[in-house]
C-alpha cells in the first residue's frame, strides 16, 4: 500500500470482499464472521462489505487458502485440518492434550501471529494475513457404551480425523474417516462404535445431541481450529482507516466466536441432558499417561523441523498466561459440571 500522507477516510473507494467457507450459514463460525463483517461495515461506513459463500459453494474446503491467494476469493475460513501443506506451523492448533480452554487457545493463536516469526512467516509466505481464529471447542467422544479409562476405547471403531486419529491409535482404538454428516446413521447402525473430532457445539447440527447415549470428555481438549485469512495484497491496497477497522473488528471476533460457541453448546447440552445421556471423563493421571504414550507434540516438532520448537514453546506459554486470567469454560465442561 502506498503511504498517502493525509490518510483519513478521504476515500469513497469501496471494497466487497468475497468470503468462502465450508461452514453452513447458520453455524456458530459463520455467525461469528457475519458479526465481524457487520462491525467492519459499520466502522468503514459501508466502505468494506463482505459477500458470503457458504458450504463450499464457491470453492472446496481444501482449496480455500489457494483460492484466497489466486483471487478466486478474498477471504476464507481455513481449517487446521486442511493446512498441513501451506500453513504447517498453524497445525499446532491440532495438538491434543494442550488445553481444555478454547479461549486460551484462541488468544494463543492470535498472539502467535503477532509475536512468533516462524508462525507468521507461513502466512506471509502465502500472501495472506490471519485475521482471527475461530473456536471449535474441546473434543467430545460420543459412544454407544460407557468408557471410564482410555483402555476402554481399545478395539472400538471411532470416527475421527486429523491428529486426534493418532491419539486414538495410541490407545488401540480404530480410527475411521467419515464425513460428519454420515456419523448419525453410522452410529445408529453400528458401522462405528463412537465418534470424535467434534465439539459439543456441533452435535445438534448432525443430529447427535438427542441420540448419543454416552458422552465422554476424553481430556484431548481443544483439538483443532480454523482461522479466517484475507489476501494480504488486497488489505494493503486499502486506505489505512479501513485496515484499522479490520484490525479492530478482528480483535473483537474472538469474543464473538466464544459467544456463538456457547450458544450452540448450551443448546446441545440441554438436548443431551433431556435425552438422558450419561457423561464421563478420564482421570488426570490417565490423560497424562495417554499424552506421554502418544507423544504427539514431540513428533509434531520433529516433523515440522527448525522453528517448530519456538512455536510450541510460545503456544504453551501464551496458553498458560491466558488460562490463569480466563474464567471461560468450554460448554462441554460446563454441561458436565451441572
Amino acid at each position: 500500500g502506498g503511504g498517502d500522507g493525509g490518510g483519513e477516510t478521504s476515500t469513497d473507494e469501496t471494497f466487497t470482499l468475497t468470503y468462502t467457507t465450508y461452514s453452513n450459514d447458520t453455524s456458530d463460525q459463520s455467525i461469528t464472521v457475519q458479526r465481524w463483517a457487520e462491525e467492519v461495515e459499520e466502522l468503514t461506513e459501508g466502505g468494506v462489505t463482505v459477500d458470503f459463500h457458504y458450504s463450499e459453494s464457491l470453492v472446496g474446503a481444501e482449496e480455500s487458502l489457494q483460492a484466497t491467494i489466486d483471487g478466486r476469493a478474498d477471504m476464507a475460513q481455513v481449517g487446521s485440518l486442511y493446512a498441513a501443506s501451506d500453513l504447517p506451523m498453524y497445525t499446532i492448533s491440532e495438538l491434543p492434550f494442550e488445553t481444555d480452554n478454547p479461549e486460551a487457545q484462541m488468544v494463543a493463536l492470535d498472539q502467535l501471529y503477532q509475536e512468533n516469526d516462524a508462525y507468521r512467516g507461513d502466512f506471509e509466505q502465502q500472501g495472506v494475513q490471519q485475521l482471527f481464529p475461530l473456536p471449535i471447542g474441546i473434543a467430545v467422544v460420543g459412544l454407544n457404551e460407557a468408557a471410564e479409562a482410555p483402555d476402554d476405547l481399545a478395539g472400538l471403531s471411532i470416527r475421527s480425523g486429523g491428529v486426534v486419529s493418532e491419539a486414538m491409535i495410541s490407545v488401540g482404538a480404530n480410527p475411521v474417516s467419515m464425513t460428519a454428516t454420515d456419523v448419525y446413521e453410522s452410529m445408529e447402525r453400528g458401522v462405528i462404535d463412537g465418534y470424535t473430532s467434534l465439539g459439543i457445539a456441533n452435535l445438534s447440527t448432525f443430529g447427535l445431541s438427542e441420540s448419543t447415549s454416552h458422552v465422554l470428555e476424553p481430556g484431548i481438549g481443544s483439538y483443532a481450529s480454523s482461522v479466517v485469512v484475507v489476501n494480504a495484497e488486497l488489505v494493503e491496497s486499502m486506505p489505512e482507516a479501513y485496515q484499522e477497522a479490520l484490525r479492530t473488528a478482528s480483535e473483537n471476533a474472538v469474543g464473538y466466536g466464544l459467544d456463538e460457541l456457547d450458544t450452540l453448546g448450551n443448546q446441545a447440552c440441554e438436548e443431551l441432558q433431556n435425552s438422558g445421556t450419561e457423561f464421563s471423563s478420564f482421570t488426570q493421571e490417565d490423560v497424562t499417561a495417554w499424552q506421554d504414550e502418544a507423544g504427539i507434540a514431540e513428533a509434531w516438532v520433529s516433523d515440522q523441523g527448525g522453528d517448530a520448537e519456538s512455536v510450541l514453546e510460545d503456544y504453551r506459554q501464551f496458553i498458560d498466561e491466558t488460562t490463569e486470567s480466563s474464567d471461560y469454560s468450554d460448554p462441554l465442561v460446563a454441561c458436565m459440571g451441572e
Binding site: 498441513a84 501443506s85 501451506d86 480425523g161 486429523g162 493418532e166 474417516s177
Partner: peptide, 11 residues
C-alpha cells in the same frame, strides 16, 4: 514446491 500432501493420517 509446497510438498503438498493429503490431509489425513497418511499424508
Amino acid at each position: 514446491q509446497r510438498g503438498e500432501t493429503t490431509n489425513g493420517v497418511l499424508g
